[in-house]
Design a protein around this nucleic acid. Structure first.
Length: 477
DNA sequence: ATGTGC
C-alpha cells in the first residue's frame, strides 16, 4: 500500500483497485508509524470501496484498528445511492463524552476529595457487567428508547436546559423500539446509570489552562474550575443491537451485490428496508446511551450535592456538552457545488460543528460546538470548539481521543498494575478501579500522545483549543 | 466496546 504525504499533517492512499475514492488521513511524523503498524489503513481502503461513498474515506489522527472500520474513521455516503455499515458506527452505539461544569475551584473540594471519590464510586457502578442503581420495566424501556433525554426530563433526571447541551438534543427522532430485539432490551434494562468497562471512565478534573479566554467565558469555563467528565455508551443494549443487525445484514449482502471484502465490513444500501430497520434501532440505542449518561449525571449531581450540602443549581452543575463519537447521522454537505444529503458515519470520531450550523441550536450557534477530547487518565483532556474548516475537510469531524497505541494484549504484556498506580500517585491522582487488568490495558502508555493528536486538528483549523482539564479522581471499570 | 464464543 503506497502512502503519500500530501501536506504537513495530511496523507493519502490514492484510488486503486476497487476503491471508489482515495483514503486520506491526518497524522504527524511521530504518529504515522503507529498507524502503519496495525490494520487500520487496510480497513480505511476497504471503506473506500463501499457504494455511494463521497469524496474520501477519512482517518482522524487518533486512528487505529477497529472492527471492520478503523476507530477514528469518518465516511459519508449518499443518502440515496450509499450504504450504511454497523461497523462504521461501532458496537458501542453512541459511545460518547460529556462534561459537567461546577462553580467550585480546587480548594473548595480539596478536603472532600477522598469522600467524593468514594461516593461517586458507590453511586455509579463501574466494571464489566455492572448494573445501575435503578431498574426499569420493559414498558418504560420502550419510552426510554423512543424519547431519550425527553424521558429523563419528564422523570426528573435532567434539567430542561440539559437538552440544549446535548448533540441532537439527546433524542434521535427516528428511533423505534419495535426494531430493538427483546434480548437487547433485556440486557439494557438493568444497566442504565452504569459506566461499563474498557476505556469508559468518570473523572473529577481541574481546569489547568485556558487557551481562548473569550470562548472559555462563553462556555462558562475558567482556570482552576472543577469539572466532571463522563465517558460511556449504550452498554449491553447497543452491543446487542449491533450484533443483531450485523448478523442480519451479512446474510443480505449477496442480494444487494455488495462484495464482502472483510467479514466484518458488513454494509447494505440505505434505501433497503433492512438498513432502515438498523437506523431505527441504532437511533433507539443512541437514545439509550444519552439516558445512561444523563442518569449518571443525576448521580454525580446528587453526590456533590450530598457532600457539599448545597443544591446542584447553587454548585453550578450545568452540562457543558455531550458529544456522540460512535454514530451515523444524516447531514447536508456541498458535493461538487450541489447540496446532498449524506449519511455520515463517525466511528471513534467526534462531531466538531463550527458557528452558524443550525444543528447547534441557540446555545452554541454563535460559538460553535464544544468538542470533548480525552487524552489519558494521567495527562487529562482537552476542550475545543468546532471551527470553520471541519465542514469542508472532514464532514464536520475530529478525533475522539488520543487513540490506542498498544493493543490490549500488548499493554498487558508490558504494563504492570503497580506501575500505573505509582504513576497516578506521583501525579496526585486518585485512581479507583474495579479491575486491575483493565487499568493495565487503559494505562497512559497504552495511548498515543494527545498533544500530537491535536496538532493536525489545530493546524487545519478543524477545531480550536479552549481549555485543558487534568484529573484529580479517576474512576474506571 | 461486550454476560470476551455457537
Amino acid at each position: 500500500m503506497k502512502i503519500e504525504q500530501m501536506e504537513k499533517y495530511k496523507y493519502i492512499i490514492k484510488k486503486s483497485g476497487n476503491m471508489r475514492v482515495p483514503a486520506i488521513f491526518y497524522s504527524t511524523d511521530k504518529l504515522v508509524s503507529f498507524i502503519n503498524n496495525d490494520n487500520s489503513l487496510t480497513q480505511l481502503t476497504n471503506v473506500a470501496t463501499l457504494p455511494g461513498i463521497q469524496q474520501y474515506a477519512l482517518g482522524m489522527p487518533d486512528m487505529h484498528e477497529g472492527y471492520g472500520f478503523p476507530i477514528g474513521g469518518v465516511a459519508a455516503f449518499d443518502a440515496e445511492e450509499g450504504v450504511v455499515s454497523p461497523g462504521g458506527v461501532g458496537f458501542d452505539i453512541n459511545c460518547g463524552v460529556r462534561v459537567i461544569k461546577t462553580n467550585l475551584i480546587y480548594k473548595d473540594i480539596q478536603k472532600h476529595l477522598n469522600n467524593l471519590g468514594k461516593m461517586l464510586y458507590s453511586n455509579i457502578p463501574a466494571g464489566l457487567g455492572s448494573t445501575g442503581k435503578l431498574k426499569f420495566a420493559k414498558k418504560e424501556m420502550r419510552k426510554i428508547l423512543r424519547d431519550g433525554i425527553d424521558w429523563t426530563i419528564q422523570k426528573g433526571f435532567a434539567l430542561r436546559e440539559d437538552a440544549e447541551s446535548i448533540e441532537e438534543g439527546g433524542r434521535m427522532k427516528n428511533a423505534d423500539p419495535d426494531y430493538v430485539s427483546d434480548k437487547a432490551i433485556k440486557r439494557g434494562k438493568e444497566e442504565l446509570g452504569s459506566l461499563g468497562a474498557g476505556n469508559h471512565f468518570l473523572e473529577v478534573d481541574r481546569i489547568t489552562e485556558i487557551y481562548d479566554e473569550k470562548v472559555a467565558k462563553l462556555f462558562g469555563l475558567f482556570k482552576n474550575q472543577i469539572v466532571v467528565w463522563i465517558h460511556t455508551g449504550s452498554r449491553g443494549l447497543g452491543h446487542q443491537v449491533a450484533t443483531d443487525y450485523i448478523n442480519l445484514m451479512r446474510d443480505k449482502m449477496e442480494k444487494f451485490h455488495i462484495p464482502l471484502i472483510d467479514r466484518d465490513l458488513v454494509s447494505i444500501p440505505i434505501a433497503s428496508s433492512e438498513a432502515k430497520a438498523y437506523l431505527k434501532a441504532m437511533s433507539a440505542a443512541a437514545n439509550y446511551a444519552w439516558v445512561n449518561r444523563q442518569i449518571i449525571t443525576y448521580f454525580v449531581r446528587l453526590s456533590f450535592s450530598g457532600l457539599l450540602k448545597d443544591s446542584p443549581e447553587n454548585l453550578g452543575m450545568e452540562l457543558l456538552y455531550d458529544v456522540a463519537h460512535n454514530i451515523a447521522k444524516f447531514e447536508k454537505y456541498k458535493i461538487n457545488g450541489n447540496e446532498r444529503l449524506l449519511l455520515v458515519h463517525r466511528k471513534g470520531a467526534t462531531r466538531a460543528f463550527p458557528p452558524k450550523c443550525k444543528e447547534l441550536g441557540r446555545k452554541y450557534m454563535e460559538t460553535g460546538q464544544p468538542v470533548l477530547l480525552p487524552g489519558n487518565m494521567k495527562v487529562g483532556s482537552y476542550i475545543l470548539v468546532g471551527a470553520e474548516n471541519s465542514i469542508n475537510e472532514t464532514f464536520g469531524s475530529v478525533a475522539h481521543g488520543a487513540g490506542r497505541i498498544m493493543s490490549r494484549h500488548k499493554a498487558l504484556k508490558q504494563i504492570s498494575f503497580e506501575g500505573v498506580v505509582r504513576e497516578m500517585q506521583e501525579n496526585k491522582i486518585t485512581l479507583m478501579a474495579k479491575d486491575k487488568r483493565i487499568v493495565r490495558e487503559e494505562a497512559p502508555d497504552a495511548y498515543k500522545d494527545v498533544d500530537e493528536v491535536i496538532k493536525p486538528i489545530l493546524y487545519y483549523r478543524l477545531a480550536n483549543l479552549v481549555a485543558k482539564s487534568e484529573p484529580l479522581i479517576v474512576i474506571k471499570g
